[in-house]
Design a protein around this nucleic acid. Structure first.
Lengths: 132, 132, 132, 132
DNA sequence: GTGGTCTAGACCACC
DNA sequence: GTGGTCTAGACCACG
């Protein structure tokens, strides 16, 4: 596992874990019926409390992404890929709509908004290229 | 005042107040040197705790949007329009960067992101045209 | 609040709390937009850990039964009644189907199952009459 | 052996094994003094841990369903049929009481509960007729 | 070894 | 005062 957690990110740690697993499932990095790292193992690796990992895993179970196999661990659910892919796209669209809504309410025109967005996109592209 | 506060919105109430005042200044709905409602008056009108209004006004003072006029109350600062316009733009840019960051981390390409954003922009444009 | 929690019940304490609140909403004992007891208050009253109450409340939030109002507490969601009523009925039906399935697989006939169920129903009716 | 084990079922694997053997005895599929598969054999066949099978067999011995025959293995006890039939009935009755208890606590009347149960019974009857 | 639950106590932002 | 999050450590059933 190669994940990066930022505890001072604003987003809750357990939420960061859950999101990254969902993304990994959507991308195919994690495959259905595959066992994920145990609560204790991932907690050790990320140097955080096992309870926090357990909370992330718990949320993923209620979301239907993980299934518990008694005494064995947690595995990616069979129907998780579809759900994660749809959820990812819908989640992003929703957040974009929020931003657009706020921009429109603040008096910007559509073309101004689009231009501003493209600027940020170019900027982020460059930084992540360097970063990775 | 014709604002709408949603206490179950996730965004802090005092933050909602501050933003709406900033937007109003940026748009010209509120003009420089104009007096805004007193803490007690606005609190009564919005049916919220006066502390919360005071906190919003306090933040706006440190942001240079409001100035205190002794014995009169709080007024829009002279240089507030410029500041609000810039702040608005920077705030939106920041939120766009967050969305872009999340989209990139989830494995979408820049062109996919741009396309998705434009879809949402078109959608919002239509709904607000109808709405207004 | 007049609830009864049995820590040695097999069912998790947080689950017992969540269920009882759902039932109370379904019955109309708790009404929409009404504030429920705070985490700390209910924990004190039931003599359990606040975290356990918080967990129950958290689950109810993801189920859409409760909404958080910042700094004020948690309130029954507007659309909770409908959801709880449907959920209650569906949950019971599901558990009945499980029992019926097990009974059929074990070789009993439909009429034997029905007779057995009615016996238990009569028995429980009497004990709860005494109990209450 | 033609059993089906679901490790992600909620019910413990050893419990699933024990129940299925009890049902088989109650139905007459397994006859008294008949030898059952060895721990290792059944574990291999079901692709599960031998410890789990051993645990199921151990429980069945304390329940008096199985008896150990030195050098031969485990066999169905002579008096097992009677016991299994009673146990099956009592187990079902217990689960029915749980469902009834929950239904009563949720505010339904006895006649509503009975009606709901009969609906589910009819439904399950039809599906199992088709299924088998 | 695995996850699931509970307790205890801490810090934070918000009202 | 409120909920939300995190840490630390315990016990349980299960494989």
């Amino acid at each position: 596992m190669f994940w990066h957690i930022d505890p001072a990110n604003g987003v809750a740690v357990y939420e960061q874990i859950a999101r990254q697993i969902k993304y990994a499932v959507a991308e195919g990095t994690l495959l259905p019926s595959e066992l994920i790292p145990s609560v204790r193992e991932l907690a050790r690796e990320l140097a955080i409390n096992p309870n926090t990992v357990a909370r992330a895993y718990g949320q993923l179970q209620t979301d239907g992404v993980l299934v518990s196999i008694r005494g064995m661990g947690l595995a990616i659910a069979e129907q998780a890929v579809r759900a994660c892919r749809d959820a990812r796209r819908e989640l992003l669209a929703e957040r974009m709509r929020q931003v657009v809504s706020e921009a429109l309410r603040s008096g910007l025109t559509a073309s101004e908004i689009e231009k501003l967005f493209q600027q940020q996109l170019r900027k982020m592209e460059r930084t992540t290229e360097k970063g990775s």
